[in-house]
Nucleic acid binder design. Structure first.
Lengths: 160, 160
DNA sequence: GGCCTGTTACTCGGATATAAGCTGTCCGAGTGTAGAGGG
DNA sequence: CCCTCTACACTCGGACAGCTTATATCCGAGTAACAGGCC
């Protein structure tokens, strides 16, 4: 159960897009160069963010990606859901109904499997914690711990 | 990010082993037949539970698996960690340090990446919720909602 | 009849194929731009 | 000098391989039970 690296890439790219002001679209190649990531694959992740409504894409020459809304309105949960998909990590296959060993009349399966319920409860806590952190908070934390990062990033994009 | 099916199998098998009393070892083939699961693969998951100290294995003829301790002392977190491994789902690769775009002096990387911190916090909540549910509670819940399940299981194993 | 021993059948344990999903890459559709030509 | 048309270069978007991980399987090591032979 390992999360895709794309989540980390996507979150960092959103912060960079915010630092750049959002006046002009930023192409995938420049974002990828900033972090030394494979550009085509990063493009795939950014497309997922567009489908989720987190970014907007501008096609054509001088096109690229923009934040679709301020970072205050995007949570870490939104980014994870955009990349990983909305489905739960634990998928109950109802093995209690399979096999004669524990087969019971259908009335016994009105209530959900206890294991499945506990798993969903735990994942709900995880989602709640992720939804409580907006990207704006992450940006502010970063600026507090590394005040020079934003300026350094802006300078690099001005040169490239 | 999908969790292995083995987790569901392992949890159900622990409940069955508890219902059977633990006087005699139960072979993999019988457990697999109970749920119509592929026996050799289930064996692999049970071995993981043995390594984690949740089950004990008895080799030789009339061998099989037994609970190593009462269900009160095993949490759902223990089962997940035994099957999935102890490492976190989110692995921070520190892309903020890669690439000239956001490269800063090493002093800026004393504190952990904010994204990584938020992810770890969320996973901690997930783990906390899983560790709060013992298998004994799951067994009791199941018996409350489906009182006949335990007897039916015992009867099936008596015939097979 | 009781005990010992060799055989046998059975089960765990790890090493081995197969399939699926993530990672990484490429090329085509679409669009804004720039330049050249004409009015 | 300004407008328009055309060709171009650039970027997104989806379709295409490579590789790691999860799934499923098989065979050998080890052990308890059983049957046969011996005392």
């Amino acid at each position: 159960m390992r999360m895709s690296q794309g989540v980390e890439w996507a979150a960092h790219c959103c912060l960079v897009l915010d630092w750049l002001g959002g006046e002009r679209p930023v192409a995938t190649a420049r974002l990828a160069g900033c972090f030394e990531l494979p550009a085509p694959y990063l493009n795939k992740q950014l497309q997922a963010l567009v489908k989720a409504g987190i970014l907007e894409s501008v096609p054509g020459a001088r096109g690229g990606f923009l934040l679709a809304r301020p970072l205050e309105k995007t949570t870490l949960m939104d980014v994870v859901a955009a990349i990983e998909g909305p489905e739960d990590a634990f998928a109950c296959t109802e093995i209690r109904q399979r096999g004669a060993g524990t087969a019971s009349p259908p009335s016994a399966y009105r209530t959900a499997c206890g294991i499945s319920t506990a798993m969903r409860m735990a994942e709900l806590e995880w989602r709640r914690a992720l939804a409580a952190r907006t990207l704006a908070q992450l940006r502010d934390d970063t600026e507090r711990h590394a005040p020079a990062a934003a300026d350094r990033t802006r300078r690099w994009f001005a040169d490239h």
